[in-house]
Amino acid sequence: DCTRVRAGSREHESWPPPPTTPGAGGLALRTFVSHFRDRAVAGHLTRAVEPLRTFSVLEPGGPGGCAARRRATVEETARAADCRVAQNGGFFRMNSGECLGNVVSDERRVSSSGGLQNAQFGIRRDGTLVTGYLSEEEVLDTENPFVQLLSGVVWLIRNGSIYINESQATECDETQETGSFSKFVNVISARTAIGHDRKGQLVLFHADGQTEQRGINLWEMAEFLLKQDVVNAINLDGGGSATFVLNGTLASYPSDHCQDNMWRCPRQVSTVVCVHEPRCQPPDCHGHGTCVDGHCHCTGHFWRGPGCDELDCGPSNCSQHGLCTETGCRCDAGWTGSNCSEECPLGWHGPGCQRPCKCEHHCPCDPKTGNCSISGVKQCLQPSEATLRAGELSFFTRTAWLALTLALAFLLLISTAANLSLLLSRAERNRHLHGGYAYHPLQEMNGEPLATEKEQPGGAHNPFKD
């Protein structure tokens, strides 16, 4: 109310998102009738397991409701958005229907507080739960933007402790006991709040009541939430605005009277907080996939990521020679192949090697630029010469093969003849011996007969003579 902060960082708590578990997109709803200083108060406590995919801030009557300063009952807004559980959301001007504070609905920023310091609750794109005070700069962050954000009044619980006194000082410096802000904090009434528990589950609180007659004050609400393991929470609109809708049907006792005083009627309010079936983030998977049970199933071979917004062409990443597109690698000039890992074949250049070289004498060109200056013209051949040389080369190859074959055949012939001759001579020798062996006395040495021959002249029989 009293301070406006445009830049810098303000006090807030960021809570990491709970781990994503497929199929765990449910909610837990509890109904209570509890006694607060001997007053029986009825209400509901709702936990949403995966806030990023199951929680939305809705504009009154659908998208464009804040710009149109529309007001609608929670039932009307919740039915159109198919909410399982819905409550009234942020504050608004009763006379004009203007949405107050920051409103980001499904990534669309539809209302701004201009840095006005009231308690905020939001979810960033990565699922981080943010509670507390935000500068305008932080609200407008584009690196990890808010996908859902709304403003309340009074930060009830900060990091597991009641934070009402501190937030009274921050959200308004006139904290005199009798001031309207102090009365707002301490009066019993119908109340609603939003926060999260230690598991990172989103918590919605609603209590029936009527200002100054039934219900609870902010202290009692904060103590109740603390007992439910809530670690950060802010107060949302209450009084006649407090409404709880279950599966599209009013499930609370609103405190506003109808035109007929006999009955109570739900108020037409501004924004609505809604817990629905798991939705994809973003709901259309960036147009590159289909949403199945809150998870994007990407189409094509190259879209990746939880929101199908990342292109992935494999571990080689187009070999640093191309750009990954939804149809695969688009290679830089001079490169080709599914991974852009091959250079253009000779005679081709340009993106995807689609352009033929236009150099004189059929010279190759630069595969990237098509420039012909990379090789000397002398080295390039006229087409007729090239054909001639090719013919010569072919003839040479044929002759060489023929000569080589003949030479090998000749060698084989010689080798066969030699082996055959060796075999025949060995067979002849075996035939004479008949398997035995014989002595061959030396006949002479240097023209003289041996001593044995000298001693046994003439017809002496030598049984061993061959």
């Binding site: 200002t211 605005s241 009955w263």
Partner: peptide, 24 residues
């Protein structure tokens, strides 16, 4: 079953209606 519109009679306002919420 329609009992008519709400009379918006249970007002719970954090700040006085007349007070302009101007930054200082």
């Amino acid at each position: 079953l329609d009992s008519g519109a709400s009379r918006d009679d249970d007002l719970l306002l954090p700040y006085p209606r007349a007070r302009a919420r101007l930054p200082r």
